[in-house]
Amino acid sequence: MGPIVGIIANPVSARDIRRVVANAASLQIADRANIVLRVLAALAACGIEQVVMMPEHGGIRGHVMRGIERSRNQGETRFPHVTHLDMPVTGTAEDSARAARLMHRAGVAAIVVLGGDGTHRAVVKECGRVPIAGISTGTNNAFPEHREPTITGLAAGLAATGRVPARVAFASNKRLDVAVGERPAEIALVDVAFVTDSYIGARALWRTETFRELFVTFADPEVIGMAAIAGLIEPVGRGEAGGMMVSLAPAATARTVLSAPIAPGLVVPVGIDDWRRMPAGIPFHPHLAAGSVALDGEREIFFDGREAVSVTLTADAFRTVNVPAVMQFAATHGLLRAGASLLATALA
């Protein structure tokens, strides 16, 4: 049997308050399902015959299975065989984590993830060394790169079938580990922010006067969200060693003020006091005594002075499909040219 690819598509991402406080867009379920169908078609075109998906109750499954049925009724063979994991559906991020754990255990060759930073974070927690290929289904994501999902699907397929060697196909990524007292360890893929809000509330961050400290794995001036703040001060690449730490303050009292796109359509002044590089493996301790910790832009943990808090950057924490590298390789080696060894290699 050939390699199996997993798909974890979150039906509920991109529905948060940023649609109200900024101009973030939301992607309808049918559009998410269309993305899945595009990915499936691309995977099939690379010779992937089996795909296993996370079950959910948001409607993606129904749309996808109907799309496949319609195509089959019309005599087409565009899609691989799709099954769903046998697992309970809770409608929370736990589903994505559990699905990733089950896919990891089942030995899938790669996992395609549709969702925002939070969905990717949940998957990365549990997928081990299984490479992931991220697709952003929201407008305020820093981790998944924005590109047409068909291309992501092709790259995942070419990488999963082994037609592009692993050293080219996969990139290693940094991660931030957050420890709060005795609580279970948490991770962030892009940023950890300490803010003075002492409640989780609507989760998103948009009141800049509450921002105090920011840690990022990479700082890209082209991304949106908290990481944009670091990116506009001093870019740090995804593949570069080390991350960055930024001390923030209310704009009125800060040493410098930066205009940063912290949400789609929301470019606001952010007070900056200081910043420095963050080497891997060394725990950093925030100065803020009480407040909440936001992981990848969403308040997740409330803490007070009684608990020790630390943030540590981990190098080579998980793997992603390096889509540009795979497509480049496919082009220079003629992997998608007619005749070639397409099916032969794919099914080998």
């Binding site: 109907r66 049925e69 319609r70 195509s71 009724n73 019309q74 005599g75």
Partner: peptide
């Protein structure tokens, strides 16, 4: 045509 073929 699509609907007749079961395309929905």
């Amino acid at each position: 045509r699509r609907a007749r073929e079961g395309g929905g």
